[in-house]
Design a protein around this nucleic acid. Structure first.
Lengths: 168, 168
DNA sequence: ATCGTTGCAAACGTTTTGCATAAGG
DNA sequence: CCTTATGCAAAACGTTTGCAACGAT
């Protein structure tokens, strides 16, 4: 959401395109490569941004177009992408937000309560501490989700900043 | 959710009871102290556990009882509690989960993907790093939400552990 | 030919709303 | 009295489902 002026982190080194990796996943599960799925991989990986199902739908061709994809299929396919390791998702304000996982480094987010902007940051120290604490608690870590809420630099310097998202 | 065998952190020093603090909040906002609100503060602060609106409803007297509280009122009141600083909330599996804020130290959570248990942990080092990173990004922190997902000690030692929550 | 996939419509679970009535200050 | 709060019913919201037709392998 509101990811228009995000500044992406450095991509990590990967040997396959998202589509190739997805094809491998489909094969390994006996699932089928349909034009809807292919169309969606390409759309989703054509820009680096956070998005929810609604925002994705909005950019998709509408009913009647040969590339039309229905809402249920969008949901089903996004779930498949997460499963395939192409996307990661988290909940924000009652919706699922998706972002690139494949070819993209682990990171966390600042969430500006004023403008709704999600900004990424990386910290190996954070991961280090997470693992240290987990070890103390004998907890086997799979992943984590950290969102730091507050006011972004832009919003705290510029007075009267109008918010870009008012949902919730 | 599934907070039956949680082991609570040490409470922090507070000078008022939750109800007293709530009364102050109501006064400051020109809101009214009703028997539903008072009943709910007392219920919510009688145990230390994570809960969602449904779980709270379930423990409440049913329709017909003099202490019956309707679902909309539960939702409205929980929101008021959050606003008053009595409760904190976060989203998990599509629902809002609430926990004590007033009189309770800041903490984060382990979330066991097997049994659904939420376990609390504290780390000042985490907060330190959070603030350090935020400073670098000129981000003004209000709070954060960290959930570390994985498998808890109990579940990884005991084989065949049946999950306690299957919602979602 | 099989069996996963699609689109549709309808359902879902959670949370919110409009409104008439009740009740706190 | 004035205004907030309540309960009800119904809506809203994001998401999921059943199903018949479709299409990939």
């Amino acid at each position: 959401m509101n990811s228009s002026d995000q500044d992406p982190l450095e991509p990590v080194q990967v040997s396959q395109t998202p589509l190739e990796r997805f094809e491998e996943y489909l094969l390994s599960r006996g699932l089928r490569k349909t034009k809807q799925k292919v169309f969606l991989v390409e759309r989703v990986f054509s820009h680096h941004e956070h998005f929810d199902a609604d925002q994705l739908m909005e950019q998709l061709p509408s009913k009647g177009d040969e590339n039309y994809v229905s809402r249920p299929t969008v949901y089903r396919t996004l779930k498949e992408f997460v499963d395939a390791g192409l996307l990661r998702s988290f909940e924000l304000n009652g919706r699922s937000v998706f972002e690139h996982d494949y070819g993209y480094p682990e990171h966390d987010h600042f969430y500006c309560l004023k403008c709704g902007e999600l900004t990424e940051f990386q910290s190996e120290e954070l991961t280090r501490i997470r693992d240290e604490i987990a070890r103390e608690h004998k907890f086997r870590v799979r992943s984590h989700r950290l969102i730091v809420q507050g006011i972004c630099h832009e919003c705290s310097s510029r007075r009267n900043s109008r918010r870009r998202q008012d949902r919730v």
